[in-house]
Amino acid sequence: MEVKGIWITENISDPKKGMDRKRSEFMRRVYKIMKKVQLEAGQLKGGQDLTADQLNDLLVTLGKKRCKSSFRTLFDFYAPRLKSFFLKVGTTEEIAEELIQETFVQIWRKAQTYDPSKAASSTWIFTIARNRRIDRFRSEKSYIFEDDSYLHKHLVMEESQSQSVFEKEIGHKMHKALARLPANQSEIIKMSFFQDLSHGEIAECLSLPLGTVKSRIRLAFKQLRSILAELDQ
């Protein structure tokens, strides 16, 4: 089966070095297949082979026991990825690392509020990192994102149990769902998250009408939802 989407093949170590073009193309395919197998096994690439469940457990343990070794493992896993994230959204290397530190200070302080039945650790950490970045580049009077856990504290509480189970599963399945999204849709989703561009700017960047960008976003969400529902069965 052909793997769709741009996420699978990206960011693996460059196979081009020291090889001719044909061989590098072959290696790309091999990496692609390896990557797919990894994802299907529910594992995430990187230094350690940590599953989403293991990452959630680490965050829970950190919250309950103030456990330094869990904290370190989370740091080893997420810090480089956060660096990648902050660099992509346009910060310097220096500021990227400052923001990683700020993010982990928040993770340490707020881990006790983390509830794995409501969000995957990746989701929770992503929102903290996003808010650190907004905080850094927007005015000091920013009320909007001052409380990272606001939505989780105030809005998620009333959720029914069945919904919560779905929420928890979302984080796990999102990788698979993303991989099945058509490339022109995942491209725009990716740009929205990582290029600090408004949808108008994305439209300009891709030489597309704004309406097309918007309709692709709607299509992407529609498709993600139906893929997630399919994976649920």
């Binding site: 990825r81 995957a120 950490i125 993303l178």
Partner: peptide
């Protein structure tokens, strides 16, 4: 929360 889960998943897939 769906969209944020998307952000989290993308974060995990970064280099």
């Amino acid at each position: 929360r769906e969209a944020e889960a998307l952000g989290g998943a993308l974060l995990e897939e970064l280099d």
